[in-house]
Design a protein around this nucleic acid. Structure first.
Lengths: 243, 243
DNA sequence: CGAGGGGTTGACGCCGATCAAAGCTGGTGG
DNA sequence: CCACCAGCTTTGATCGGCGTCAACCCCTCG
């Protein structure tokens, strides 16, 4: 519906500082995991560490193409907006994923618009820096390949889940994906807005609402606290099979 | 429905011979385009050039994982078969595309089943050969990256077209994709079977049939010869916008 | 000539889109 | 602290599109 609010361009990004990759405590799961500490000594352009509040746009499909972003914390949606204004979520990414990689393969612009769903925490990496590092450290190429492959697998899962029959089945699939994807240790996760869920599986928001409400009533979704839920995995899997 | 017939395993693959990449006249659009001619002199395992008839399975999701395949001619579908036997086409690939690349990124098996839609002509490349070549010629890494990125873009298009509203709109989208994808110089292309089209956009085969028949009646699809059609691009684009 | 598979067309019923209205919640200002 | 409002969620009522079942046509192949 009204995605105008989404358009608010990173009004209040917070600059945390220059990233110190050689000291990064989560580097093992990031893009640069296999590079030596010395690799970062003389990069041409700096890597910055930024915070964006939920709802802000990280880049727009028309943005100047210059940076890729490595997600440290939080959740990002890649969206596609049709000519007629209809809005689709193409992918949902979390910590460890890199967005904007299309720029490395000679794309002339970003292929999507990237928006923060939660508050997020990411490293902004200039394309030229990656290219420079790839030259000296070919192992980085394989990391990029793994990223792409992982996102391709995700897209494939999306295609399969999307078209999996009835609305109830799709919503069940989606909840299972959120659970698998984004549950903390206790198995509880944040439900997205009904509008976002609808934009993922291609049905009306009211229908999503009905299904979610029904799941809650049947205790397949239980509120664990403030905004978190836990789901009954077995029961939902059952639903994905037979309506 | 009955995808049993698909299961016929490469009954009559024809071995054309050892591939001679250094002499390949279409290498400019293939994976190895930027390698020097000398690169192929001492590869451990040979690259073979094979022909498969339409309908044969190139690899199955359970196949022994050993080869990637570069498509020289023809069309291949990557499919996913659900537990309940429902069948979805995840991607459609043509000349210049490489399938089975997931093996390079440490996948433990193929991620799909690959089936020839038309008669096809492809080069079977052992994974170890690619790895060996990548070592000596890092430029190959970037070619692989481009392949993955291209397939990711395709998957994204799929997601967007899949969920684009009414059945008529989706079929129109699909025809446009086939046209863009697979039309020859004269702009004519082969229509897939109704079942395959249905498996791509997630609607019933009868509905696909109705839509295609309607397009034919309105002359948005014209038979050019035996099995080929040409489409009215502008009119179909119009349909994708307003039902 | 008959059998079988794919495509086309019709009839019917249900799922889900759409329109509408009423709770809920959090934020703002009095 | 409460009143009010805006946006989100939930729920209801209605209607059309599409899935389903079924019949028929056409073409190929045995």
């Amino acid at each position: 519906m009204n995605k105008e609010n989404e358009g608010s361009f990173c009004t209040n990004v917070e600059w945390v500082g220059r990233a110190h990759c050689e000291k990064c405590h989560i580097r093992y799961l990031m893009l640069f995991s296999e590079l030596p500490n010395t690799a970062f000594e003389k990069t041409l352009y700096p890597i910055d560490h930024l915070l964006y509040p939920a709802g802000s746009t990280i880049y727009d499909i028309d943005s100047q193409k210059q940076y890729t972003y490595s997600i440290r914390r939080g959740m990002v949606k890649l969206i596609h907006t049709g000519l007629d204004g209809e809005y689709r979520i193409v992918r949902l990414l979390g910590p460890g994923s890199v967005i904007g990689l299309e720029l490395l393969e000679g794309a002339r612009s970003y292929h999507h618009t990237a928006i923060a769903i939660t508050d997020i925490d990411l490293c902004r990496i200039p394309v030229t820096t990656i290219e420079q590092l790839e030259d000296k450290h070919p192992v980085l190429c394989t990391r990029v390949g793994k990223q792409l492959q992982a996102q391709l697998d995700l897209a494939d899962q999306w295609i399969i889940a999307l078209s999996a029959g009835s609305a109830k089945q799709r919503v069940a699939q989606l909840v299972l994906m959120l659970n698998e994807f984004y549950a903390d240790k206790t198995g509880s996760f944040v439900l997205l807005s009904r509008e976002d869920m609808a934009a993922m599986i291609g049905i009306a928001t009211e229908t999503v609402s009905r299904m979610i409400a029904e799941f809650k009533r049947q205790n397949l979704l239980q509120k664990t606290n403030e905004k978190n839920y836990r789901c009954d995995i077995a029961a939902l899997q059952q639903i994905t099979r037979n309506d």
